[in-house]
Amino acid sequence: MIDWGTIVAGILTLAVLTFLYRDNPLYKMAESILIGISIGYTLVIVWQTTLVDLLFDPLFGDSRLSLLIPLILGLLMFSRFLSKYSFLSKIPIAVMIGSGAGVAIPVMIEARTMKQISATVAPLVSSSGMPDISALVVLVGVISTLIYFYFSREHKGFIGRIANLGTYFLMIFFGATFGYTVMSRMSTLIGRMEFILTDFLHLTQ
């Protein structure tokens, strides 16, 4: 039996790869189809799993009238398309931004700041009572990186030297991240190559 799914996927895969030579109509068409399909997919999933499951079913099915509030707020978002009333869309945005900011403060203090500072300082002295060299490297790295991003004072003299040291730590981090990013991108390529060679062209097993 002909596997139409693989044939379609194979043709589209090759169409995208033609971009490696240069931009061309085949690639543009594949790209346009992708944009349309992916937006359509998101629309369907969001409609079904959020608006139907969280709003319409409980509101109209179970008569949870409190849900009229997010319904009205949500509908106000559409006022963006009416220039005269577009200011109304700021109200639902205010709800989202306010809520986001409110929950972020304690979490950012606790999870991102305090916990990370404590993890930097705590291992400085090992269980044997001796200073831990690696932990010292981490402490110096954290402080110098923070100073590198501290722009309220000019990076001159002692501050400048520490900020300069921070650059080296940052470069090690960026290098490591680049290495892992190469791994990631190559993995994606390998996956597509496996599809072309094995599933589509049957050249390998």
């Binding site: 993890a119 981090f173 991240t177 892992y180 990013t181 791994m183 990631s184 993995s187």
Partner: peptide, 10 residues
């Protein structure tokens, strides 16, 4: 994904 490994190290 490998690209995110260093992000999660801390």
């Amino acid at each position: 994904a490998a690209a995110m490994v260093t992000t999660y190290d801390p």
